[in-house]
Design a protein around this nucleic acid. Structure first.
Lengths: 235, 235
DNA sequence: AATTCATTTTCTGTATACAGAAAATATCAG
DNA sequence: CTGATATTTTCTGTATACAGAAAATGAATT
């Protein structure tokens, strides 16, 4: 049943077309929670599910493991990387620093075009209520920020981190009133960047991204529930 | 001729023992310049050279590509990632920021034990003249710094970046008087961390890692030579 | 001589087959 | 009934085989 694979997908110019698509497909399932942290990923099961052999599945899994989205357990096969509260905290601390760096550089170096794109992305978020819609538009905003940093290498790294943090970001936006707060913070960030206030932008971004206090507790609880569902599933 | 593979290698608990060793072996050759930037890596050639089939070679290459040490060219096979001067600059800017972050956190949070390890690593560098020896001891020092940050996630990321930057770091130490300067900078960094001067440590590390001015020109020239040698070789 | 078309060869991605090891199960002895 | 050992099954890593496509080579025609 290869109908599970998305069509040609012209953007994936990666090695091994099939493995590329498989990677995206499996990653999607991890991100959306269909395969929650802790869930086992069986090579043959996946191969059958996607209607391919083990080889491209393995390639996709190896790549996912290399970016730490999944892990290989000694004698238990592959599993979606479980994430302890501590690790979650560290991850967001790191992400916060990356984005702060992007902001700092953007405040200094952003071209008018990049600034305009950032502004447009911000405006697009205004008034959006649906968490899923906001989730997507929020990502666009943040990507525009990364790009405004002007450091291609940094952009790559931050994009990859964004990918890794994606499952958790998604959960966060379900915290009550988070969307409104998020938008207000974006406003301040944009203002700082436009004013070439590098340190201000950095600090605001750090605060914006890092998850603290009640928000963190809420996030941990969500992840716990999520993980539990996954354990049930792997029967 | 499997004699090319290092023996059992107990540390590599990674998936696929063979592929793990192959990865390390190929990476080593990239780092030492045996496979310089731009050099082609042929699957069958490597398979024959290492006395294995294409499968584990492929796994190793996929993993190397995932950490961006090599790339897959459209119809040209795999090649060691070529690095433009601009990219080199961006890479070191990024690495500088990562290390600065480690230093900032270390100044705030380092445990006495971590501090002691950092100091010991620093002292071990004193008086070392040989670039290769210093290269190794310098790495130990920097790893001790990362660990002192206390953020496991950050440590992982920084270690991975260190890996990626390794080929170029090695070249840098061949710049005249670089070793002495490097050691002196370490001294200042350690002092700042011991004094809990977070911002001072961060700034000194940024300066220490980022490659600028004459040093950068020198580095670019070394890389150019290196790359040229690689192009010759792939005849 | 140059360009185009056809043929061959090489190369890459995927499938399949196979071997060794660990885990699960079963069997037997105490 | 419990513990230990033997057997079977499953699973993972590697080798090999195969197919499709692109590049390279060669031939033929203008």
């Amino acid at each position: 049943m290869d109908s599970l694979l998305s069509p040609p997908s012209p953007n994936s110019s990666s090695p091994s077309p099939l493995a590329g698509q498989l990677l995206e497909a499996i990653e999607e399932r991890i991100v959306t929670g269909e395969y929650p942290p802790g869930a086992r990923l069986d090579e043959v099961e996946l191969a059958e599910a996607f209607g391919v052999s083990r080889t491209p599945i393995r390639e996709a899994l190896i790549r996912l493991a290399t970016i730490h989205m999944i892990e290989k357990m000694p004698r238990k096969g592959w599993a979606v990387s479980p994430v302890s509260p501590r690790r979650l905290c560290e991850m967001f601390e790191f992400m916060g620093e990356l984005e702060a760096l992007c902001g700092r550089l953007a405040a200094r170096r952003a071209t008018p075009f990049q600034l305009q794109k950032l502004l447009a992305a911000h405006e697009a978020c205004r008034g959006v209520k649906d968490p899923d819609d906001y989730y997507r538009l929020n990502e666009v905003f943040h990507v525009a920020l990364y790009e405004a940093s002007g450091n291609e290498f940094l952009i790559e790294q931050t994009l990859e981190m964004q990918r890794r943090a994606r499952p958790y970001r998604r959960l966060q936006l379900r915290v009550p009133a988070r969307i409104d707060n998020s938008f207000a913070e974006h406003e301040e960030i944009v203002a700082a960047i436009r004013a070439n206030d590098a340190e201000g932008a950095a600090e605001k971004l750090r605060q914006h991204v890092t998850v603290q206090g009640e928000r963190f507790a809420h996030l941990v609880k969500s992840v716990e529930k999520w993980r539990a569902a996954g354990i049930d599933r792997r029967s």
